[in-house]
C-alpha cells in the first residue's frame, strides 16, 4: 500500500489524474448531430443524470476520448469512449413552464446516446 507523504503532495496534485485517454476510438457523433439519450436505470454508477434520460439534444462539442465511468466503476474496465457536450433546451427537459431560450449542456459518452 502506497502512502502519500507530505513531501510528495505538491508533485501528486500537479500531476493530477487524467481521465483523457490517448487511444483513437471512432466517434459515433459530431457537432451538430441530433441525439437522444438512452432511458436506462442501471444499478451501479452512471453519469447520465436521471433528468436527462430519454431526451433529445444536439451535440455541440467533441471533447475527445475519455475513460467510461460506468464500466470503470463497476470492474475497472476503462472502456475508452468519445465524450461530447450535448445541449438540451430547458423545454425539452422541464416542459412548458421552462424558459423558451435557456439551455442545459451535459457531458455525455457514446454509450449514453443514439441518433435521434
Amino acid at each position: 500500500m502506497r502512502v502519500l507523504r507530505a513531501s510528495d503532495v505538491g508533485k501528486v496534485l500537479l500531476k493530477g489524474g487524467p481521465a483523457r485517454v490517448d487511444t483513437q476510438v471512432p466517434a459515433k457523433f459530431k457537432p451538430g448531430d441530433e441525439v437522444v439519450t438512452r432511458n436506462m436505470s442501471p444499478e451501479g454508477h452512471t453519469r447520465l443524470p436521471r433528468y436527462a434520460r430519454g431526451r433529445r439534444g444536439v451535440v455541440k462539442r467533441h471533447h475527445g476520448v475519455f475513460i467510461f465511468p460506468d464500466t470503470h466503476a463497476a470492474n475497472g474496465d476503462k472502456n475508452p469512449q468519445n465524450l461530447y457536450s450535448v445541449c438540451f433546451t430547458a423545454r425539452e427537459l422541464w416542459g412548458e413552464p421552462a424558459s423558451e431560450i435557456d439551455k442545459v449542456n451535459i457531458d455525455l459518452w457514446d454509450d449514453y446516446l443514439d441518433r435521434a
Binding site: 487524467p18 481521465a19 483523457r20 453519469r47 447520465l48 443524470p49 436527462a52 471533447h63 475519455f66 475513460i67 465511468p69 465524450l83 457536450s85 445541449c87 424558459s99 431560450i101 435557456d102 439551455k103 442545459v104 449542456n105 451535459i106 457531458d107 455525455l108 459518452w109
Partner: peptide, 14 residues
Amino acid sequence: ETTEIRVWDSTAEV
C-alpha cells in the same frame, strides 16, 4: 429575459 442562460452540468472530467 432575452439573455439565454446556459447551464453546464459537469457530469464528466471536463
